[in-house]
């Protein structure tokens, strides 16, 4: 898949959810012997559109800008 001309990555997509509290809530047991606040998680989150764990730097054709991100310049979003 070729990179899109605009850097609209998952980080600024409405489908992407990487809040640690959310991840620990939906991923049973994560807080028992692990943590969503740890460095090893990097910036990964859950894509509600594809139902997958994805990197914040991934992209796809289903990108939908977050409302607050849509008003920012592309470079600011990185």
């Amino acid at each position: 898949m070729a990179a899109p001309s605009r850097p609209d990555t998952c980080r600024d997509c409405r489908h992407f959810r990487d809040d640690p509290a959310y991840l620990e809530a939906v991923c049973s047991g994560l807080a028992s012997l692990g943590s969503a606040y740890a460095s090893v998680r990097g910036e990964d989150g859950i894509c509600d559109h594809h139902g997958r764990y994805v990197s914040a730097r991934a992209w796809c054709d289903a990108f939908l800008p977050r409302l607050e991100a849509a008003d920012r310049k592309p470079d600011d979003a990185r």
Binding site: C27, G29, L30, S32, L33, G34, S35, A36, A38, V40, R41, G42, D44, G45, R52, Y53, V54, S55, A58
Partner: peptide, 13 residues
Amino acid sequence: GVSAAIAVAGAVN
């Protein structure tokens, strides 16, 4: 353990 599972889950989509 759990840390590796969550890290690799993200790495392999």
